[in-house]
Simulated scan of single mutants.
Amino acid sequence: MNRLVKMRTQESLCRERAALDSARRSFWRAQAEEWEQRALDEIAHHFRECNLGSAENQPPLS
């Protein structure tokens, strides 16, 4: 989860820069969107691992 916190922090910093740097606003917004997508991918990866782990511990269906 530390990785997720770092990704969300980067996203937030990019959004702040976008608000303050009108000359490069679109660049910073794009960077923020990339960090947001990385965070979403990290969350999805975490849940896939959790679901695979719980599926392996369940008895097979008959």
Rank of each mutant, 00 (worst) to 15 (best):
R8E: 12
E56L: 12
S26R: 07
A39N: 02
S54C: 09
R29Y: 05
T9C: 05
K6R: 06
L40I: 04
C50R: 15
E56H: 02
C14L: 09
V5K: 12
R15S: 10
S12T: 13
K6A: 13
M1N: 04
C50N: 00
A23V: 06
D41M: 06
D41F: 04
V5L: 09
M1L: 04
L52M: 11
A32E: 03
E33R: 07
N51G: 00
M1C: 01
P59H: 08
E34L: 12
P60L: 06
E49D: 11
D21L: 05
Q10M: 11
M7N: 05
F27H: 14
R48C: 02
W28M: 01
Q10H: 09
E36C: 08
R48S: 08
E36H: 15
N51I: 10
R38L: 13
A19H: 10
E33D: 13
N51P: 00
L61F: 05
C50S: 05
R8C: 05
A19M: 09
E34W: 03
Q58V: 03
A19L: 09
R17C: 03
L13Y: 05
W35S: 07
Q58P: 00
E34Q: 12
F47M: 15
A55R: 13
R17Y: 06
A19T: 06
A19G: 15
P59T: 03
G53Q: 14
